[in-house]
């Protein structure tokens, strides 16, 4: 009798997410946004007629906040205080980061942006759904396809047709119920 139970319990404590390099870069990014805020803020023109503190002061204050907080974070990260990554029901903090899937998803969103105008919204949305579901490992492919098409048509009908959001209907042009 062989009970091949594979769901082995992942033991041990949660692995530290990622390398501190990424976190450090992000903190430095916050500092640099603040610095850019100062530099670009100096270029904001102040009309001489302005009686109040003008359009520059608040941007400078925000930039100062970013620089100060960012520097504090850089310091914290260097001293070994790490941020605790967001948790969720569908998130496995012990899993290795799956950059490939993230890249695929981002790629399909980008592709979608370029397809809306030539192909119309329903087709572009169906491709996005199909691609995203595939990237995330949904199977079988024909069910993904059917779901993608049905979802795209329903959304086009509800938002384009019923609610009057002007989504380009693409090949559905002329069918009144899908708006346009």
């Amino acid at each position: 009798m062989s009970t091949s139970v594979q769901n082995s319990p992942g033991s041990g404590t949660a692995a530290a997410p990622g390398k501190p390099i990424g976190e450090l870069v992000f903190a430095l990014l916050i500092v640099s946004i603040g610095v850019v805020g100062f530099v670009a803020g100096a270029g904001i023109q102040t009309p001489p007629s302005a009686s109040d503190i003008g359009p520059r002061a608040f941007p400078f204050a925000v930039s100062a906040l970013l620089v100060a907080v960012g520097a504090g974070l850089v310091f914290q990260v260097l001293r070994g205080h790490r941020g605790s990554a967001d948790e969720g029901e569908d998130v496995d903090l012990e899993a290795k980061t799956d950059w490939l899937t993230v890249g695929k998803l981002a790629g399909f969103v980008l592709l979608h942006a370029f397809l809306i105008v030539p192909l119309g919204w329903p087709v572009a949305a169906a491709i996005l759904f199909f691609g995203a579901a595939w990237s995330l490992g949904a199977r079988p492919w024909w069910r993904n396809l059917v779901t993608a098409i049905v979802l795209a048509l329903v959304l086009q009908f509800v938002f384009g047709g019923l609610l009057g959001v002007s989504l380009p209907p693409g090949f559905l042009e002329g069918l009144g119920i899908f708006g346009g």
Binding site: T3, V5, Q6, N7, G137
Partner: peptide, 23 residues
């Protein structure tokens, strides 16, 4: 699974259970 094992061993036939997560 243990309930299933109970049923099968009571039945007295040779058996194995493949219980897993699979792609």
């Amino acid at each position: 699974v243990s309930k299933l094992e109970g049923i099968l061993s009571a039945a007295g036939v040779p058996y194995s259970i493949r219980h897993s997560i699979s792609e």
